[in-house]
């Protein structure tokens, strides 16, 4: 009877162990982050040695080591922000593709849109001024009914002014000859 109990105990222990082993194996084996996951972070970083080459496409050994470090940190469960912060702490803010929005770096974000808006405003003002200037000579010659902007001028438009001017010009030329 006693031996039977011992065998039963061993059996249940084995059963328990069998259910436990896979869970241990799963928890010990972290999934390896894919290249896409690594590159999603790597393309936001630049190695100071290979300036102007994003880390995800940089072929040097240094960049390869950086990518492997990212993979390792992802496997450890670090977030994207934590990984980027690690790289900033270790190598400086210049490794970031986008400068941090602090201090003088704000100029990078503020100046281009302000310059663009200023340019648009300037162009708008220039165009309206030019439009007004093209209209004003006609209205100034008492031909207010004219639109004066089409290829075929309407009746009573600037054509009369031109005719008068041409006539006077020809007269002047005749006098000189």
């Amino acid at each position: 009877m006693k031996t039977k109990n011992i065998f039963l105990l061993i059996f249940f222990f084995q059963l328990f162990a069998a259910t436990l082993i896979p869970s241990i194996a799963v928890s010990a084996q972290q999934p390896t982050p894919s290249d896409d996951e690594v590159n999603a972070i790597a393309r936001q970083l630049y190695c100071p040695v290979c300036e102007n080459t994003p880390l995800d496409v940089c072929p040097t050994t240094a960049c390869h080591q950086w990518r492997e470090l990212i993979r390792q940190m992802l496997a450890e469960g670090k977030s994207e922000a934590e990984i980027k912060q690690y790289f900033v702490d270790y190598y400086g803010a210049r490794v970031l593709s986008e400068p941090p929005r602090t201090g003088i770096n704000w100029l990078v974000y503020v100046v281009p849109p302000v310059a663009f808006l200023a340019g648009v405003t300037l162009l708008f003002r220039a165009f309206t001024t030019w439009k007004r200037l093209t209209k004003e000579p006609i209205t100034g010659a008492d031909h207010s009914s004219s639109s004066g902007s089409g290829p075929e001028p309407a009746e009573g438009s600037g054509t009369a002014v031109d005719d008068e001017y041409v006539a006077r010009l020809e007269e002047e030329l005749k006098k000189r000859n």
Binding site: E136, G140, A141, R168, L169, E172
Partner: peptide, 16 residues
């Protein structure tokens, strides 16, 4: 050439 410009000067609307 005695043609007088018959345009009136546009009012000045410069940037402040």
């Amino acid at each position: 050439m005695s043609q007088e410009p018959n345009t009136t000067p546009a009012p000045k609307r410069g940037v402040p």
